[in-house]
């Protein structure tokens, strides 16, 4: 199991220009494996920026990020991509499914560069869709899905490469309360399967959920408060 630790991480956009802006300022924290951690905070607090650095989507301007024993903050893009595709699964606020493709085609998309055997890939995809009650929509175009269905398709896509860590950026922003509760139920399932889940949200349904083990509150790019929920 890999622990994620951040040591004095800073992210500055437009460095050296008049519009220079520090989105993350000296953040140090530890994300425990096999737990659900929520990064909480208002818009502009730096939640998504921090999440993108943890998920190897971008690199910090300074400071270090460790995944287990490996320092990932200084790795070139090629290695970051390799870690990203094997270790992380992403669920985005806008779901980011590719319109015009079917649900199953969207789900298997992250596996293309790894070129697994097609038959076993399709089997895995159908298993995931069945687990999230979406198998009957496998051949439907994603643009025709409801919000909840699109969310579940995005979860299936995030899990197709069997990643250890699942990253969800504002996953309930486009869902009603009922679907948000359902989403947290799905996260609980994943934790039971031994996954580490990292969520950013300013939705009380998420950070007050009993599924969440710890909450890290961010404000203006710094850690404001960290709390552990009783499991």
């Amino acid at each position: 199991m890999n622990r994620i630790s951040l040591d004095n991480v800073t992210k500055v956009f437009n460095q050296g220009r008049p519009n220079e802006y520090a989105a993350i300022r000296g953040v140090s924290l530890t994300i425990e494996p096999n737990k659900v951690t929520c990064l909480k905070g208002p818009s502009g607090s730096g939640k998504s920026t921090l999440l993108s650095m943890i998920g190897c989507l971008s690199r910090p301007s300074s400071g270090r990020i460790h995944l287990g024993d490996q320092m990932i903050s200084g790795l070139p893009e090629r290695f970051l991509t390799d870690i990203r595709r094997h270790t992380f699964g992403f669920i985005f606020q806008q779901f980011n499914l590719i319109a015009g493709l079917s649900v199953i085609e969207n789900v298997i998309l992250p596996a293309y560069p790894l070129a697994p055997d097609h038959q076993s890939l399709m089997m895995r995809a159908h298993e995931l869709l069945a687990r999230f009650e979406l198998d009957h929509k496998a051949d439907s175009q994603v643009q025709w899905l409801s919000g909840g269905e699109a969310q579940r398709a995005a979860i299936c896509r995030a899990l197709i490469n069997n990643p250890q860590i699942l990253i969800a950026d504002e996953p309930t922003a486009n869902l009603d309360t009922k679907l948000s509760h359902a989403f947290m139920g799905q996260m609980s399932q994943l934790r039971k399967l031994g996954k580490t889940v990292l969520i950013t949200s300013h939705d009380p349904v998420v950070f007050d959920s009993p599924v969440v083990d710890s909450v890290v509150e961010l404000l203006d790019g710094s850690v404001f408060l960290g709390e552990e929920h009783a499991a």
Partner: peptide, 8 residues
């Protein structure tokens, strides 16, 4: 999207 889901 492709890059974020693991394409190089």
């Amino acid at each position: 999207i492709l890059k974020s889901i693991g394409w190089e």
